[in-house]
Write a protein that binds this DNA or RNA. Structure first.
Length: 566
RNA sequence: GCUGGCGUAGCAUAGUGGUAAUGCAUCGCAUUGGUAAUGCGAAGAUCGCGAGUUCAAUCCUCGCCGCCAGCUCCA
């Protein structure tokens, strides 16, 4: 029995419990998913938290009774007959192709139309728990009726369930929506609107460090920074095709004196206009324009989420204009850049997706080949996301796993033969004729907002010293050491370090606690002896061993630690 | 956008058809201390916004805004 089979069986048990307690609810489908299972029901009354706990109790009983799971093959007519009052099951029974078996599975008094894949009996479910209830559309189509989906999870043993719940707790502790405001990094203000991020001084500081790190990488690779306007004539997005493909995702037009403007949802047309502003020779290529470009997209209200799904954000964007011959090499190097960037932030577990275009064109084979070849040349395994590409070309998406194994989608590198065509871009070839360049769109961190959110969760707010907004705090034991604390702080600042002095009139324990909750990497305690000796007592985050070192030595150590990461 | 839940000082929570309580944070005073909370005191809230019902609404009803769990979407 696989974990999926166990969980699928748990879904049957849930439906059994629902049949017992809420006979009017119509069961639809109930598959196993990554972290558990769900079952969708049609019922007019909502399921309450109280209902869930009753259902869970009932499920435990069903598991305990250890019902055998028995299946039998039936004629379509029998299935249709059985589900006369359940249009969802009827629809499913009708859609099973001729020749394929139609099967019913039974545990105790509950029988479900199901293709199979179960535990032998309900007793094999060692531990089961209902998690939440939420709406879900029938067949995932927002034009179809909405059902009530009950989520649950199941494991072979209670220990595994407990571990999973502990994991969820750990994830909640790292939630950037909680840590961000707690560490005074950013906020989202109701007065300004959802999905619009206010970067506080400390968050802005960290973002600046990240941006500078990215800038250094770009400079090394010959990118040229550019800056483009946030608002331009709407016509530009008609030409690019964004308006016809994504009008619903753009903020509406702004009309002034008969001219229609749009907030930019994308930086590419801007970079294209810079390219077009002069003529180019094949000798100039590749041209690489980079920009921390702030864009605005009208994401639907229900989709907004902390820093990871917002309405205004800044991409670490760049567009490469190259000859078809250069495409392969440029793509490979861009992929290398992406991995170098991620590794610098302690990410080392990646997944790669080749997302193809839904409506394929004649250039897609070439574009996809560039992506495949790049991945294969680096020996990187990848999956295909059919139809997941941009409207102008296929793309490579890089997903990463954070410190506790969660997946995040960040970087993307895309090949584009379409926009050069739409904007009639050209360069003069060695043959004296005009040729069409190929574009590579790439955002490696993705957006500064999203990347920052992921960093917070990855580190659990414990930024490594090179990223920490405050790297060390001088903590005097009494106010008699204040002057010395300021002197020591000045030495650290002179070494380019970010340091604060705790001037509060509190006892040492209170100060330590305060700075620990602020997740400062180094708390430097100075009392009588330290002030007399010119030392600090180092309380390092994550290290219970304290040590006393001369202030100059500590400054050099911390400086080296910070430099090592850059 | 859809379904369900939620919205009370900066934060976390309590509570009620008769304008609100506690803890932390803040400020003041005392205290001058050795590694995760010193004591006392003060101040701080048109109970998300707007309308309705009512003698009276933070509480009941409706609309809007925002948040949460999902669904759908994601150039």
């Amino acid at each position: 029995m696989t974990l999926d089979e166990l969980r699928h069986t748990a879904a049957h048990v849930l439906a059994y419990a629902v049949q017992d307690l809420f006979p009017e609810a119509k069961p639809t489908i109930g598959p196993a998913i990554d972290n558990g299972f769900y079952y969708d029901f049609q019922r007019d009354e909502p399921f309450t938290a109280d209902d869930l706990s009753k259902l869970e109790t009932r499920m435990h009983e069903i598991v305990k009774r250890d019902y055998e799971m028995t299946g039998r093959r039936v004629e379509r007519s029998e299935a249709l007959d059985r589900y006369q009052s359940n249009p969802f099951k009827v629809e499913m029974a009708r859609e099973i192709p001729e020749g394929e078996p139609i099967t019913l599975y039974t545990i105790g008094e509950f029988t479900d139309l199901c293709r199979g894949g179960h535990a032998k009996s309900t007793g094999e479910i060692g531990a089961v728990k209902l998690m939440s209830v939420a709406g879900a559309y029938w067949r995932g189509d927002e034009h179809k009726p909405m059902l009530q989906r009950i989520y649950g999870t199941a494991f072979p043993t209670q220990k595994e369930l407990d571990d999973y719940l502990a994991f969820l707790e750990e994830a909640a502790k790292r939630d950037h929506r909680k840590l961000g405001p707690e560490l005074d990094l950013y906020s989202v203000e109701e007065d300004a609107g959802g999905g619009l991020v206010f970067w506080h001084p400390k968050g802005t500081l960290v973002r600046g460090i990240v941006e500078n790190f990215i800038r250094e990488g770009l400079a090394e690779r010959g990118y040229q920074p550019v800056i483009t306007p946030h608002i331009v004539h709407e016509k530009l997005y008609e030409t690019s095709g964004h308006l016809e493909n994504f009008a619903h995702g753009m903020f509406g037009p702004i009309e002034v004196e008969g001219q229609r403007f749009r907030l930019k949802p994308m930086n590419c047309p801007g970079h294209i206009l810079i390219y077009k502003s002069q003529s180019h020779s094949y000798r100039d290529l590749p041209i690489r324009y980079s920009e921390f470009g702030t864009v605005y997209r009208f994401e639907r209200s229900g989709t907004l989420h902390g820093l990871t799904r917002v309405r205004g954000f800044t991409q670490d964007d760049a567009h490469l204009f190259c000859t078809p011959e250069q495409l392969q090499g440029e793509f490979e190097q861009t992929l290398d850049e992406a991995l170098r960037l991620m590794r610098a932030f302690n990410f080392d577990d990646f997944e790669y997706f080749l997302s193809t275009r839904e409506h394929r064109g004649p250039t897609d084979d070439i574009a996809e080949a560039a992506i495949r070849n790049a991945l294969e040349s680096r020996n990187l395994p990848y999956s295909i996301d059919e139809g997941g590409g941009a409207f102008y070309g296929p793309k490579l998406d890089i997903n990463l796993h954070d410190a506790i194994g969660r997946k995040w989608q960040l970087g993307t590198v895309q090949v584009d033969f379409i926009l050069p065509e739409r904007f009639e871009l050209k360069y003069r070839g060695s043959d004296g004729a005009d040729h069409r360049p190929v574009m590579i769109h790439r955002a490696l961190a993705g957006s500064m907002e999203r990347f920052f959110g992921v960093l917070i969760e990855h580190f659990g707010g414990n930024f490594p010293a090179w990223l920490a907004p405050v790297q060390a705090v001088l903590t005097p034991i009494s106010e008699h050491q204040l002057d010395y604390a300021h002197e020591a702080a000045a030495k650290l600042r002179a070494a380019g370090l970010r340091v604060e002095v705790d001037e509060s009139n509190e006892k040492l324990g209170y100060k330590i606690r305060h700075w620990k909750t602020q997740k400062v990497p180094f708390i430097l305690v100075v009392g009588k002896t330290e002030a007399a000796d010119g030392t600090v007592n180092v309380n390092e985050r994550g290290n219970e061993t304290k040590r006393t070192v001369p202030i100059d030595v500590f400054a050099a150590e911390l400086r080296a630690l910070v430099d090592e990461r850059r």
